[in-house]
Design a protein around this nucleic acid. Structure first.
Lengths: 126, 126
DNA sequence: AAAACCGTATTAGTTGTATAATACGGTTTA
DNA sequence: TAAACCGTATTATACAACTAATACGGTTTT
């Protein structure tokens, strides 16, 4: 069963997108495996303290994008073979690295400063 | 006069927030200097193709946060001495570096992989 | 078979974002 | 001084995101 304990919702972006991204990252990292069972919409919405429809929207998107499979009436399952996981991982990491580089350039932060900053921040506690 | 030519609006986040962030980054980089004149709400909204109220919302936030000053009737000006600029720069870069580190960790990407990825992406054309 | 659970769908209400039209009084400028 | 421009404010409308309550039929479980 996929655990959503690590999901900390914030108000910066729509909740359904945070749920989608959480599952994508889980697949990318390998923490969420192919064929794994998902909690039901009702159970997950209660766990996260959000509306069942919000979870349904997230799961609907995930199914459209081919990352889960749902049969009406039964539980849903993760669909993430190694090819899919590798592709998602590549997409997400590239996208985020590019966004950071672009943003730092806008602030006239050099490549060296950026690398040093990330290296330093990496060791911080949360 | 502050130029907003580099501002490319996208649909990923609210427009007023994009305007706020653009000016903050400009101050952080030093491209937007203390005391510089800002375009009027009407002129800027026409330039960006958005509603004057959207620009007003962004400028209202910027004034609340002490990054511009407005006198009713006259133009507005940037308020960004070196202390302010340095503080904003520190806040934004730290925030973004932390977000990236956190995100990469969620995908089980190592520190070395992250640094290598950013180093590689930095040299890409846009 | 019956109960419990599931995915899915519908309708309604609230909030935030953005547009649109307009108005008021203060400042600049010709 | 008068025109033009400015910051600011108000009201109305539209749409997306989110919440809420409810319902239907299919699947699992006992």
């Amino acid at each position: 069963m996929v655990s959503f304990e690590g999901l900390r919702l914030n108000s910066g972006s729509p909740i359904y997108r945070q749920i989608v991204l959480y599952l994508k990252k889980g697949i990318a990292s390998g923490h969420i495996a192919d064929g794994e069972e998902l909690p039901s919409r009702r159970v997950l919405s209660a766990l996260l303290g959000v509306n069942p429809n919000t979870v349904q929207k997230a799961f609907g998107i995930l199914e459209e994008e081919g990352m889960i499979r749902s049969h009406s009436g039964a539980r849903s399952f993760v669909k993430a073979d190694s090819d899919v996981a590798g592709r998602i991982r590549m997409e997400l990491t590239l996208e985020q690295a590019r966004a950071l580089a672009s943003s730092m350039k806008q602030m006239s932060v050099t490549r060296e400063q950026t690398l040093e900053l990330i290296d330093r921040v990496w060791g911080e506690e949360e």
